[in-house]
Amino acid sequence: MLYPLASLESDKLNAIQNLEKVIGGPVVALAGVEAKTAELPEDQLQKLQELEEELGIVLVAVRPN
């Protein structure tokens, strides 16, 4: 399961913004997406991790359908 940022309708965004005011801090909305991660050989995993470090992001290799 992966969790990208959720696309929100205005009523949901307003509800989250109201909650942020109540709790005094930001809230991030994520949406679940079914995905099976790929099992990579060590050399490919290392390349993925090096690119993550270089780009400053998280990468997930998934199995093609």
Rank of each mutant, 00 (worst) to 15 (best):
A31F: 03
L30F: 15
E54K: 14
E50S: 14
A15S: 10
G56H: 10
L30G: 05
K21A: 09
E42T: 06
P41H: 12
G24F: 06
S7P: 00
L55A: 10
G32A: 08
L45E: 13
N14D: 15
E42M: 07
A38H: 14
N18W: 04
E50H: 06
K47V: 03
K47Q: 15
P41A: 15
N18I: 02
P41C: 11
S10D: 13
Q17D: 04
L8D: 07
E53K: 09
K36A: 07
A38S: 13
L30Y: 11
A29W: 06
V27Y: 07
L40Y: 04
E53V: 01
E34Q: 11
L51A: 06
E53P: 00
I23L: 10
K47C: 04
V58C: 11
S10Y: 04
E39C: 01
L8F: 05
E9F: 00
V58G: 09
I23W: 09
I16Y: 00
A35E: 13
V33D: 06
E53D: 14
A29R: 03
V33F: 09
D43T: 03
P41E: 15
L13C: 03
I57D: 12
V62P: 00
K47E: 13
E20D: 07
V62S: 04
R63M: 11
A6Y: 11
E39K: 01
E52N: 08
A35M: 08
L59E: 10
E34K: 09
A35P: 00
G25F: 01
T37S: 10
D11L: 03
G25C: 01
D11G: 01
V27P: 02
V58P: 00
S10A: 10
V28Y: 06
V62E: 14
A29G: 01
P64I: 08
P41K: 14
Q49D: 14
A29T: 02
L30N: 09
L48G: 00
K47G: 10
E34V: 01
D11C: 01
G56E: 15
L30A: 13
Q17C: 01
R63E: 15
E53F: 09
K21E: 12
K21C: 08
Q46G: 05
L59H: 14
V33H: 06
V27N: 10
V58T: 14
E39I: 01
